[in-house]
Design a protein around this nucleic acid. Structure first.
Lengths: 184, 184, 184, 184
DNA sequence: CATGAATGAGGTTTCATTCAT
DNA sequence: AATGAATGAAACCTCATTCAT
């Protein structure tokens, strides 16, 4: 028997998130995915039960990847201000470095027939658990409010395609300052 | 086309935003829209050139409605803190009072093949123009950062379906406090 | 608006029963049906909810047609022997005159995922009700046994493609004699 | 092919006739067969040239099994009436004891693209050859008519799922009486 | 012998849109 | 203006079969 080809699965996953950025959830059909991945449409169904499962799987991988990226930036000896800055900065860079993954995540999680917020919340809890444990970071604010203030404004900045990178960089500094003031 | 302005157009618009919440962009087909609006599929094409146009039109109406709602809350004699509180509070209530419209807007604006950010930004500019004019509200921060901090965290709160209304209300107060600290 | 085209529905129905004879249930796809009927595959779905519904509908029409054909042959002044002869003869001629319909009915009613015996039994009851009412035909045997003896052997004869029509005609006379002996 | 005669072939055959009863000819795919038999789809092609061959092979085995079952019931010293009773009774019990095989045979032999009546008729000839030889059973009626009267009404009885086993038993006695009257 | 991977063809159904009334 | 009929294209998915191990 033939072994499952990891490279093929990777190509399929890559095709999905590319298409989600180029054509949107609507335009991301199995046929297009297969064509872009260089496989037959039937092959997709070897790696995933069905389209919904496929999107969900890839969504989980993407969002886990994002959280891992955030966590990896945190160091033990950071001050609270530094931690905020690091998280915000890393999140921003994740968004602009992975526009496809971000676009995919946003489309997926805004689609009522697909969305399963559960994972997001679980990972976010893990993140805060870890932060609080490592830094005895006792918060005045709820985790929900913290994550809302820390990450959501950055989405607005990353989604902005009107301004130059330089301008956006300046706004990032501005936002970091504002968020620090908000939390500390 | 756009000839007989009618109650029918309203029913179509209502059907679109309801379907976008119930079935997502993918599940919102002309046939379903027509069925839910109680008209023929062909009738939809009397009011809108094609599906993309239809979505864009309805998107503009929805987002304008949202901005109008925000603006209407602002009074001339407000302090800056009051203004922030009012804007945030109104935005939150708009989101939970119009879940369909909000869901529609998010799906539409995250879909790369549809999105036309232009209007959003124009309306946002109008909002800030108006605020600054009326209140000689000179800002230390850019408009982009302000709107990011003012409105995006609230989306996170509105999207949360895990907590009770009471809990969300408490978090709203928290967020208002944080946002005021951030900006002032 | 366009009126539903009765001719089109007839052509679809005709295509279905022709294909069932030529290619079997397996080979009777919507695409082939549409091609043979000279319509688009999508058009089939204007006339029938889905394929299963379509087959069921056409099955009911075919089996009703068969029962009507049988009933029409019965006259009030017939003796019991004459009635048996008439029913058997008419059934035989129905089968060889409508090979497509018969083949369709047999395939349909033998397919476990489709079959809905109910109508058959209802019509068979009607037939016996009518016979008994009109002819005070009090039976020593149950209706089930009667219909089994009257009609099922004829299926065997009609299905036989090895013998000439003449030979089959002789066997029909034989069977009539046997069935009369069995019942009377 | 047909190399390693194995328990596997039995499992495949069993899966085929089970699926034919549960899902019909349409629902009996190689993939499902393989899954149910606990083998790989490719393995099926070791034992059978292709799907059509497989169905034909299994059909022959099933119908031979049925004829063997019938023949085994006949004893040399039987009267003609006894022989009729025995054949009918055995056929009935074969049908209700092997619903899967029967359903498979009916679907197969009614499907125009598969059917190969030849074997049936050959085995039926053998059966009558044997009967006549052993019992100097000179018939007034043709073999075709005899087999039609002997076996086909029983199919109707076996297919009936409306009545209780007790009721069906009574109808079986009725049918035996009728068939004896018809033939003798 | 046995298998899971792979696939082109084709399955049913729905799509956005136009036609004819 | 309004509609139900009609449709080619395309959606998702499964098919029988072969490949490579």
């Amino acid at each position: 028997m033939r072994k499952k080809d990891d490279e093929k699965e990777r190509r399929i996953r890559q095709a999905v998130i590319e298409l989600m950025l180029e054509e949107g959830l609507n335009g991301t059909s199995i046929a297009k995915i297969a064509r872009m991945a260089g496989v037959s449409p039937a092959t997709v169904y070897i790696y995933y039960e069905n389209k919904e499962d496929m999107l969900r799987d890839i969504y989980l991988e993407c969002s886990n990847q994002a959280y891992d990226y955030l966590l990896n930036g945190i160091r033990c000896n950071m001050s609270r201000a530094q931690m905020i800055e690091t998280l915000v900065r890393r999140y921003y860079h994740y968004l602009i470095d992975h526009p496809q993954a971000h676009c995919f995540i946003e489309q997926f999680s805004n689609c009522p027939s697909l969305s399963t917020k559960s994972n997001c919340e679980k990972r976010m809890q893990d993140l805060f658990d870890w932060i609080e444990e490592e830094h005895s970071f006792h918060q005045r604010y709820s985790r929900e409010s913290l994550s809302a203030i820390l990450f959501y404004p950055i989405k607005a900045l990353a989604a902005d395609h009107e301004h130059s990178n330089q301008q956006k960089q300046r706004q990032l500094e501005e936002l970091i300052e504002m968020i620090q003031k908000a939390i500390l």
